[in-house]
């Protein structure tokens, strides 16, 4: 599904990502962890097309998507959520989903003017399903800016799913959540398994990462220091060292 080959992204002299090799298989839920500043978010930004890579290639379903402009990535099948929430605050919950859904169906090709707001029944059904999935059906006419924090996170996830992506990038979806909300998020992510979407999960909350992922890669200083199943990672000495800062226990 996704393959990074010697991916690098430098900011001046800082090597945020430095020769990263990574392969995510179809249908996997893949965890990307590491201390602050280890290059996780930069990796997501490069895959999503917000930052051009300094070097290396990004293969998505066998094709090099490096030259693909940002707005085309969604159509190619890549959607993401943001660590700091980026909803369309002055649009309603329903419209937030509609924008993504509509774009997924190629806004440009079908033309801007061809359809008036309201959408076809297929689109409406899909949005209704997503509202149900994220528990926001009763808030569909609320402005996104007026939602509670946890609801905004759920809406971001729903908006990313609205585009029916093949690869979903989740950038710290549990940040700022209490443990009950993390539990709900975990159920949601697990329910996506088998729906055909591959997930790259960047997360600090170990409870979530260890509970949902099939495989985990650990970054430190922009490089991969370990990769394996959650159980292997938990036992890995280099990981403990990177996280605890001391010598391997």
């Amino acid at each position: 599904m996704l393959e990074l080959r010697s991916l690098a992204r430098h900011f001046g002299g800082v090597r945020a990502v430095d020769g990263l090799n990574l392969t995510v298989q179809d249908g996997q839920i893949f965890g990307l962890i590491g201390p602050n500043g280890s290059g996780k978010s930069t990796t997501v930004n490069v895959i999503a097309g917000l930052l051009p890579p300094t070097a290396g290639t990004i293969l998505f379903r066998g094709e090099d998507i490096g030259p693909l402009p940002t707005h085309r990535r969604l159509r190619a099948g890549i959607a993401r959520t943001f660590q700091n929430i980026r909803l369309f605050g002055q649009l309603s919950v329903w419209q937030n989903l509609w924008v993504a859904q509509n774009s997924a169906e190629d806004l440009a090709r079908r033309g801007f003017f061809t359809r008036w707001l309201g959408g076809q029944s297929g689109v409406r059904d899909e949005i209704a399903r997503l509202l149900e999935f994220s528990g926001l059906a009763h808030k569909q006419n609320e402005l996104a800016a007026n939602l509670a924090f946890g609801e905004q996170r759920r809406l971001e996830l729903a908006r990313a799913l609205a585009a029916r992506p093949k690869l979903l990038l989740l950038d710290e979806p549990a940040a700022g959540m209490n443990s009950e909300e993390v539990g709900q998020l975990r159920e949601r992510i697990l329910s996506l398994r088998g729906s055909g979407v591959t997930i790259l999960l960047v997360e600090h909350v170990m409870e979530l990462v260890m509970g949902v992922t099939d495989r985990i890669a650990v970054l430190n200083f922009g490089q991969k220091i370990a990769e394996g199943t959650p159980a292997e990672i938990q036992a890995h000495p280099a990981v403990r060292k990177a996280y605890l800062g001391g010598e391997a226990a």
Partner: peptide, 9 residues
């Protein structure tokens, strides 16, 4: 930023 990622040029 999000608009671009939603496929808007």
């Amino acid at each position: 930023v999000a608009a671009q990622l939603c496929g808007i040029r």
